[in-house]
Design a protein around this nucleic acid. Sequence first.
DNA 1: TAAATATTGATAGCCATTATCAATATACTA
DNA 2: TAGTATATTGATAATGGCTATCAATATTTA
Lengths: 142, 142
Amino acid sequence: MEATLDNLKSILAASNYKLTAQRKIILQILIDNRGEHLSAEEVYNIVKTEDPGIGLATVYRTLELFCELGIIQQLTFDENCRRYELETGEEHHHHLVCSKCGKVIEFNDEVLEEFESELEKKYSFKVTEHKIKFYGYCEDCQ
Amino acid sequence: MEATLDNLKSILAASNYKLTAQRKIILQILIDNRGEHLSAEEVYNIVKTEDPGIGLATVYRTLELFCELGIIQQLTFDENCRRYELETGEEHHHHLVCSKCGKVIEFNDEVLEEFESELEKKYSFKVTEHKIKFYGYCEDCQ
DNA sequence: TAAATATTGATAGCCATTATCAATATACTA
DNA sequence: TAGTATATTGATAATGGCTATCAATATTTA
Ligand SMILES: [Mn+2]
Ligand SMILES: [Mn+2]
Ligand SMILES: [Zn+2]
Ligand SMILES: [Zn+2]
């Protein structure tokens, strides 16, 4: 189920977390920027326009918490910078990242699910997570 | 073509780099540890047993250079620790990483190559590189 | 309302990796 | 072979994203 401002309180309460103004603001920002893949620093800069008093540590903590709760997922296009996006509840997707302009194209998971099943059988390995990224040049940058 | 101690000099010279004792030692260590996925720190610890005078910065620099030259490739099973392995010149492979015992299983690329071609057509995207990892539990750890 | 508990902001600390720079080694030339 | 240009090295300081700490504050529950 996708997180909204309305169900955030119950999502938090289910794990004994409290609903705070900071958490609401950060979720709102993630929702407003659906389709983007924001870093903690970027979220922080947006947050400050709404509540200049908020701390950077709170942004990091909140993003980590939202990951733990399945509200968002963490991405790493470029090491030394973690990015985040809303977990939609729909099917997974992965990313094509343009090495020149930075554009990110999303594609769905279907074919990979099949491949994953084959791997599981072949190696008696129980897959819990996969991280897949393609790098190259987008149509405009070739 | 796979790098050896014999062709290292010409590989380096082709890009105006010099052959040094440190570079030879580090390549030898990577060859001796084929199949492992060593971090810079781990390479450094092995290096020191052969030449205690070698600097950590040199290990980092050399691994970076070897990547640039295609002698090795960089891996990231766990962020905040880059790992390296010899580029064999044979077909690519990717990794299943056990979240419990850390075991790494390698699998080949074939199916993914196909999938990649489809993506390129569908999105007019020229893929130059892909990073793919599966996480989960190996046979012994399930 | 009060008590228990979770959360916050400020800031110090962490740590893998990079940058700096003077000293040294390599490769090329005469 | 000696000399020169250039690349490389080791030591170490710096970087930067992220995490830990902690007293003050907010939220929840009774
Ligand atoms: Mn996405
Ligand atoms: Mn491997
Ligand atoms: Zn582009
Ligand atoms: Zn295992």
